[in-house]
Structure formats: C-alpha cells, structure tokens
Design a protein around this nucleic acid. Structure first.
Lengths: 147, 147
DNA sequence: TTGATAATGACAACTTAATTGTCATTATCA
DNA sequence: TGATAATGACAATTAAGTTGTCATTATCAA
C-alpha cells in the first residue's frame, strides 16, 4: 500500500541526492580546477574519442556556444588539443592530451572509490531494482513531457 | 554481480531524472506564473504555517536575501500576506492567502496525478526498495561529504 | 536600564552557468 | 555555381542565486 507516499518520497530523494552529488562533485572537480561542464566535455572524449564542438553540443544537449567556451578553456589549460578534421577545415576535432587523459582517469578513480564506499552495504539486487525503477521512471517522464 | 556498473548508472539516472523532473515542474509552474523558488516557499507555508523570511531561509538553506525577494514577489501577487509577529515587530510572519492556498493545492493535485501516471505499472515493493536504497545513498553522501 | 551585539528588510553589485543573437567565414549539395 | 547551412568568435542577456552594506530594530548580559 501507500505507493503514493513512496512515490513522492522517491522524487524528493532524487532532488536531494542530486544536490548532494553535485556538491560532492563540485568539491573534487574544483580541487582540479575543473567545472562540471569541463568534466562532461572530457567524458565525451575519454579515453580517445575525437569530436568537434558541435558534435559535443548535440550529445550534451547544450548550446554549441557554451561548449565552445568550455572547450577553449580546456585548450588553454592544455587538457585538450585540436587535431585536423579531414571532413571539415575550420571545425577541428578535439582530443584529450596525455595530461587530460590522466586527469580524467584520476577523476574516474576518485569517483569509483567514492561509489564503492557509498554503495558498500547495499545488496546487489537492491541496487539493480533501483536502477530498473529509475530507468522506468525516466522513460515515463520523458514520454509524458515528450522531449 | 557488477554492482559497479549499476552503481554508476544509478548516479547517472539520478542526474538525468532530476533534469527531467525540473523541466516538467518548470513547465507546469510556469503556467501558473510561478518559479521553483516560489513553490518551495509556498510549500513551507502550506496549508497554514506561519514563518518569517529568515525562518524560511534557514529551512530552505538559501540566503535570506533571496527568500526576501521571492516572498516580496508573492506578496505583490497576493499569494501571501503579512501577519503580525508577536515576537518581532519588524519581521512579520508570512501566511498563504486563500488564493495562495488554493493555487498550491491545485499544484499538489497536478503533481499527484502526474506521479500516479508515472508510477503506475511499478510494483509497490520495487518502489519501496528504491526509496530505501536512495535514502541509504543520501545518508552516505551526506556523511561522506559531511554537511 | 543600558549599551553592545545580532537580526532584519531593502537595495545593489556580483557570480555562474547557461542562453540567444549576430557576424564573417567556410562547407555542402542540388 | 550559387543558395543554404555550419562553424567559431564575440556580445548581450537570462535565471537563480550569492555577498556586501546600510539603517533600523531586537535581544541579552552586566
């Protein structure tokens, strides 16, 4: 019974957990001089994917101008480099530098350790159920709001 | 097995679901000329709680100046009224007007219907497991990041 | 009771992470 | 080839906050 109570609480928890996760991420990314947008861009390129700015913008679902600014900052700090794009002269491909790849790998390790800690003690089946439930919810949310 | 994969996916889903929920909320709140901050403030006062601006700021964990602006807007649109504060002459208590209470109730009904839709088809046990899992995660996140 | 300290509302400036608009340049394709 | 679309750069704007400051008003310890 009372699925309504649990349903409401689940949505509340999603909101609260998002905030807690964002704070935690801001803190360890900030220690490396990165923003959340930097991390997102780097994730698209890790470990050795080559994409243009508009490619990343389409995948990240964010304006290309915003990605451009983020990418330019990462080029300045030499976490990314331009590589020639055979398909387009002006729009070069972006690639992680060795330094960028190592930094992202260390971020991944940090996140992995954090998750291990945080998920320790939960039963695998419970986590699997949670995953499936959230996937279902996301599906419904996206189709209800159809975007 | 692979709790690691599920763990990572759960955190991804929390982020994605948060965005989907926020978009959906912005859309129906916007239809009523409200922002997310307006809704949050109204929730603290619903159905008939009386709080001052600094009280709300402390509970909402947000600066009192920001709450002040939000509250002033809600006073302008007559969704809130000031009532005298026996404990403080300058800092009056805030209360929902009849109109404000009705609007918030209708928002609640809308949200309830949306949740019923979205959670229909999920088994109550699954939702309960999800709730407990997310509660555990939140607990760990808060103590790990200790705030 | 008073006098130092804290709380409050108002206002302004700033911040962050984004968006939208515009331009010149360069690609693409019918 | 010529119209249309894509790209990078730059600027202005936006949303939802924060921080700083001021004058006023409370509160509390001596």
């Amino acid at each position: 019974m009372n699925i309504g109570q649990d349903a409401y609480k689940v949505t509340w928890l999603v909101r609260r957990l998002f905030r807690a996760m964002a704070e935690s991420a801001d803190s360890y990314l900030g220690n490396n001089g990165l923003t959340a947008a930097d991390r997102a861009v780097m994730e698209f390129l890790y470990p050795d994917t080559r994409l243009t700015v508009p490619d990343i913008a389409r995948r990240y679902q964010v304006s290309r101008q915003h990605v451009q600014v983020t990418v330019n900052r990462l080029l300045d700090t030499e976490l990314l480099i331009n590589v020639e794009n055979p398909r387009h002269k002006r729009s070069s491909l972006l690639r992680l530098t060795q330094q960028g790849r190592e930094l992202f790998a260390s971020i991944r390790r940090h996140e992995g350790a954090l998750l291990d800690d945080i998920f320790a003690g939960l039963k695998p089946e419970e986590v699997a159920v949670t995953r499936r439930t959230l996937e279902t919810l996301l599906g419904h949310f996206l189709e209800t709001h159809h975007d």
